[in-house]
Design a protein around this nucleic acid. Structure first.
Length: 476
RNA sequence: GGCCCCUUCGUCUAGAGGUUAGGACGGCAGCCUCUCACGUUGCAGACGCGGGUUCAAUUCCCGCAGGGGUCACCA
């Protein structure tokens, strides 16, 4: 238990495997406020233990988005600190040392089961309606290759306290012999997390509710290492309108979207502060400093809040009207819509079509609009009669485009052409509807260049909107 | 399905053992106004169900239902 003189230290551990997520901002905000209020430290640790999916580019984007929001960390991969390195991929030797210790003390073991065997075991368990999990095949073997698994005690209860929910009790037998150390020499989240939280002297782990069920594994690890666990607080998850965990299929979730769509960073923060939290005095409009001052863990509500864009929009409007004078608003427009590098990229594309200045508006309007829409039949692809199939194709296409980073002409070109090949489509049959989706027009500058200039977020928003139109048609 | 978490207006939430259950977004209506927007005023709108405990439960307890999360060599 952290004693009163100890410095409060909290952390966030984003995984650099995609676009910066609004959920990261939400959890960051609460961590930041909790620490700052008590003069503690807010630490950023990059959890890039998934070699296949992690990228430096994604890491950069996450850091830059959090900075945009003004959630500056005290220790992190870019600013350093006394307990570095702050990138897990640079701490491999540390984890190795601790896994070895665990194996030696008999609390973990090497496992050489193949993926096929594991799948088979799982299949059998499912068929017998048994709980799924590792069957302990290698538990008593002594080998030194493969993966290392946690040797979960067969008996007893694991109890931990959640600051928001009280004691949570789970039977030890319910806990799986989780892989701690992968065959590629990288740790899994569970191991890296516990080791790092301990070494970085983290006092409070404030994270999403999705982690509750793996906390017992972490508690076990603290016990096996003989370490004092931190305090835990699991925040309710942000939800889609249908109450499922907020996801990009059903909501814009990239922080880059909010930035590009013209939301003010302080508005997004304000709005996130309204999720699962409320000021004692009922105030709904507040600055980050206000939030830091007034945040209290025991005022966090536990029902998963639906991330409602409508209220966010209203809030952004209020900030613009009330907190920006004309000069500031002008500046906002210049930065947001008419930034000179954005403008010059557009000029490059439309200049040859223009005869006088006004023409620019007619040719380039879609670069400045929010949504663009056309009649649904324009989204049809020659040879695809089935609307359901059509929707599937676009869904797949959008997901493919979303994964591009950076979102540049070459990558778009390659992705789009490969997509045509994969789905047996002629490029001219696909490109026109896509053009209509992203520009709202049949005539536009070259598609790939246009998309690159529009940016990933505008493209995905418009394509999702179009997809929604197709799906709506399906249901009537 | 097993385990775990959660449950106040459509949405974000306040609330206390006894309140006309409060506010905000959205909706609707009036006012303002050349229009729209803003602003403003008002209206509709919630304690999931069943048992307890209690003089009294929406509030405390238990069950149920519903929702969610998790069951990877992803985090």
């Amino acid at each position: 238990m952290a004693n009163l003189t100890d410095e409060i230290r909290v952390r966030i551990g984003p995984s650099p495997t995609g676009d910066p997520h609004v959920g990261t901002a939400y959890v960051s905000l609460f961590n930041y406020a909790f620490a700052k209020q008590k003069n503690g430290k807010f630490i950023l640790r990059i959890e890039d233990t998934d070699q296949k999916r992690s990228s430096l580019d994604s890491e950069r984007a996450i850091l830059s988005s959090l900075k945009w929001l003004g959630l500056q960390w005290d220790e992190g991969p870019d600013v350093g600190g006394p307990h570095g390195p702050y990138r897990q991929s640079e701490r491999l030797d540390i984890y190795k040392k601790y896994v070895d210790q665990l194996v030696e003390s008999g609390h973990a073991y090497w496992c050489t089961c193949s993926a096929e065997r594991l799948a088979e075991v799982r299949k059998r368990q499912l068929a017998l309606k048994q709980p799924t999990g590792y069957d302990g095949h290698c538990r008593e073997l002594s080998q030194t290759e493969g993966v290392v698994r946690l040797k979960t005690p067969k008996e007893g209860k694991i109890i931990f306290n959640d600051l928001l929910r009280g004691d949570i009790v789970i039977e030890s037998s319910e806990v799986d012999d989780q892989v701690l150390f992968k065959s590629d020499g990288f740790p899994t989240y569970h191991l890296a997390n516990v080791v790092d939280d301990h070494l970085m002297k983290i006092t409070h782990v404030i994270r999403g509710e999705e982690w509750i069920s793996s906390t017992p594994k972490h508690i076990l690890l603290y016990q096996f290492f003989g370490w004092q666990p931190p305090q835990f607080a699991h925040l309710p998850l942000l939800r889609n309108f249908d109450k499922s965990k907020v996801s990009k299929r059903k909501n814009p979730v990239s922080l880059e979207y909010f930035k590009e769509a013209g939301y003010l960073p302080e508005v997004l923060l304000n709005f996130l502060g309204l999720m699962a939290f409320s000021f004692a005095d009922g105030r709904e409009i507040f600055s980050l400093a206000d939030f830091v001052q007034n945040f209290k863990l025991d005022r966090v509500s536990l029902g998963g809040p639906v991330f409602d864009l409508q209220k966010l929009l209203w809030l952004n409007g209020r900030y613009l009207r009330e907190f920006r004078d004309n000069a500031q608003f002008t500046k906002y427009l210049q930065d947001q819509l008419f930034a000179s590098d954005y403008l010059s990229q557009i000029v490059t594309l439309v200049k040859e079509r223009v005869e006088k200045s006004e023409d620019f508006i007619a040719y380039a309007d879609f670069f400045f609009k929010g949504d663009v829409t056309v009649a649904p039949e324009n989204y049809e692809i020659k040879g695809i009669a089935d609307k359901k199939k059509l929707a599937e194709i676009y869904e797949a296409l959008i997901e493919k485009l979303e994964s591009l980073r950076p979102f540049d002409v070459e990558r778009i070109d390659t992705a789009l052409r490969a997509f045509c090949l994969d789905h047996d489509l002629k490029s001219r049959d696909l490109f026109m509807p896509v053009r209509l989706m992203v520009t709202g027009k049949k005539a536009s500058p070259p598609l790939f260049e246009t998309m690159a200039v529009l940016g990933k977020e505008r493209c995905r928003t418009r394509m999702r909107a179009a997809l929604q139109v197709i799906k709506t048609q399906l249901h009537v």
